[in-house]
Write a protein that binds this DNA or RNA. Structure first.
Length: 569
DNA sequence: GCCGTTTTCGGCCCGACTGTTTTCAGTCG
């Protein structure tokens, strides 16, 4: 799909036009189109063929023409035109915190900057200080921005951010000076990666709260410390911001700082059309403050129901709220069992008994043991004989276990030629069969799609694990026609996994939503290799909620009997 | 460049903070 390529072109165009000082509204239009294309699960070529490009919000005649040109010729002449004389490296510098388009343009024009090295040298020189608007402080801040960018490299996975933020919140609570403290920002929306961590607190003494915050043991550098806002760098290079707000505007502030930006812009437009104004202090009619102590109130004044944070991405949630058709999202407490767990029979650390005991803490009814098959030798894959012995062991254990049922399963490899790593007569003996790709990631889209479809069409396969193989920040999804996978899964009754392992989150939020639209059933599983990793279920739930999934879309919300009956076999 | 139960032209979200300024531009979220 060319969706991503086009999205990147429009984003790049926005960057370059910003650098050149073009009309900010035009720049915004390109940014919006880029975002819409990035979120689009339908193939842009298909929409173009059907003449539906302009049905996309943010795509008008100008951008539609550029998309068509790209699909026909592989280039966008307007893009070639604007980037003339502007090097790639130069525009990359806009990623540096505290360095925006105006300052970059100034440094480029006056000091002939083209890349990071030249920029660093220039900022340390006397000549830079003499430029209008530039001073020692500003140069220093940009240099710090460069250091931060190099160190952190940008965003961290949600699963890494959560423990850090929990630690910070616990530490702040022990000080006894905050009344409430909550995460906001992309963390509250449960995005798969987090840039900065945003926290919001209420309490009497803002200065003291910020003072305590900037002196927490996890802090390595203090960027700002005022009466209402503190900003620090923690171990590992992640920035954490804490804002202290008055209790009466806590709801408005929470709404405002949770975002997303696109969601908030839509809300403020609606407010404006009703003669109202929203900011982080409340909702206003003229000078009069008419609400904002709770988030519910902010939405309610606009005539909307409260919208769950996971949906706030301007992906149709506001229209759904207006129509009263918001989904009733699946919740962690709906989950009745985990369907992908490794034991010490393959590469897991715990025994079957230990896993069963841990699962009881989550009040699960069942737990599916899904160790690797023999092809994945590096992970201690089981031979057919070992698997048969494991099945017997599980049967025996179940006669002793109380309050939980272990299910005998496997994570059987889908081999490069599309066949499965266990013969049918072995798979038939299992309660549930999970199948997955662990090799041959570089196959072309046709081969890979056919390979996975082979498993989906196999009557013995119940679930496809981590269907795209992507690793966040590590490995791109393999080339596969997901929409075809979703449609055939729906047709055959094969469930697709949302793998909750923090680096996978595979399917992704957008994938889930498309899979559900096409009628596929999903399961949420942790792929735990240690007992405590069963807790990753919350990450899988976050993905499912961001994918607009309801309880009925997720098979492992069903009690044991009904779950087993819902499987393909 | 997009968009329209105020509009096909004239709008396009809102405010804080910082650093550089004698009233504001740039950057960020």
């Amino acid at each position: 799909m060319k969706n991503r390529e086009l999205s990147e072109i429009f984003d790049k165009m926005a960057d370059i036009l910003e650098f050149k000082g073009d009309n900010p509204f035009k720049i915004n239009a390109y940014r919006k189109a880029a975002r819409v294309l990035k979120d689009l699960t339908e193939d842009i070529e298909k929409l173009a063929r059907e003449g539906k490009l302009k049905d996309l919000s943010g795509v008008g005649s100008g951008i539609a023409k550029k998309i068509e040109e790209y699909l026909e010729t592989g280039r966008v002449s307007k893009y070639e035109e604007v980037k003339e004389g502007v090097s790639e490296g130069l525009i990359e510098l806009l990623k540096i915190p505290d360095l925006g388009p105006k300052t970059l343009a100034l440094l480029h024009k006056e000091m002939n900057i083209h890349n990071m090295t030249e920029l660093e040298e220039a900022l340390q020189s006397e000549k830079a200080r003499a430029l209008p608007g530039m001073g020692a402080k500003k140069a220093e801040n940009i240099l710090r921005g460069i250091r931060l960018l190099k160190e952190s490299g940008g965003r961290i996975p949600l699963g890494v951010a959560l423990p850090l933020v929990n630690q910070v919140i616990e530490l702040m609570k022990t000080k006894g000076i905050v009344r409430e403290i909550f995460p906001a920002g992309s963390l509250r929306r449960c995005r798969e990666t987090i840039g900065d961590i945003d926290l919001l607190a209420t309490g009497k003494d803002g200065t003291r709260i910020i003072e305590e915050f900037t002196h927490l043991p996890v802090v390595t550098e203090v960027l700002a410390a005022g009466k209402t806002k503190g900003s620090v760098i923690t171990h590992g290079g992640t920035q954490v911001d804490l804002r202290v707000v008055p209790g009466e505007s806590f709801g408005a502030a929470l709404q405002y700082f949770t975002g997303s930006k696109a969601h908030n812009v839509r809300l403020r437009e609606i407010a404006k059309s009703q003669g109202l104004k929203i900011n982080e202090y409340g909702v206003f009619r003229g000078e009069e403050r008419i609400g904002g102590s709770t988030e519910e109130e902010v939405y309610q004044i606009l005539g909307l129901p409260w919208i769950p944070p996971e949906l706030r991405e301007d992906r149709g949630e506001i229209d759904a709220a207006m129509k009263g058709s918001l989904p009733s999202l699946v919740e962690l407490s709906d989950i009745k069992g985990d369907l992908h767990v490794h034991s010490d029979w393959s590469d897991g650390s715990a025994t079957l008994e230990e896993l069963a005991q841990e699962a009881k803490k989550f009040r699960y009814e069942y737990l599916l043991i899904a160790d690797h098959s023999i092809a994945v030798r590096i992970a201690g894959g089981l031979s057919p004989e070992e698997l048969l012995r494991q099945i017997e062991k599980i049967k025996k254990l179940n006669t002793k276990l109380k309050g939980i049922t272990l299910l005998a399963g496997t994570e059987v490899d889908i081999l490069s030629d599309g066949s499965l790593d266990f013969p049918d007569e072995v798979l038939e003996k299992l309660d549930v069969v999970v199948a997955a790709v662990h090799s041959g990631f570089k196959q072309d889209i046709h081969t890979m799609t056919k390979r996975i479809l082979g498993a989906i069409e196999n009557p013995l396969v119940d679930i496809i694990a981590h269907p795209t193989g992507r690793l966040i920040g590590g490995r791109e999804p393999y080339a596969v026609d997901l929409n075809e996978i979703f449609s055939r899964s729906a047709a055959t009754g094969t469930a697709l996994e949302i793998n909750a392992y923090y680096e996978r989150l595979d399917l992704s939020d957008l994938n889930c939503r498309e899979a559900q639209k096409r009628g596929a059933k999903l399961v949420i599983s942790t792929d735990a290799h240690q007992p405590n990793q069963l807790d990753w279920m919350r990450l899988g739930i976050a993905v499912a909620r961001r994918g607009w999934l309801e309880k009925g879309d997720v098979l492992n919300t069903l009690p044991l009997e009904r779950f087993l009956n819902s499987l393909k076999r």
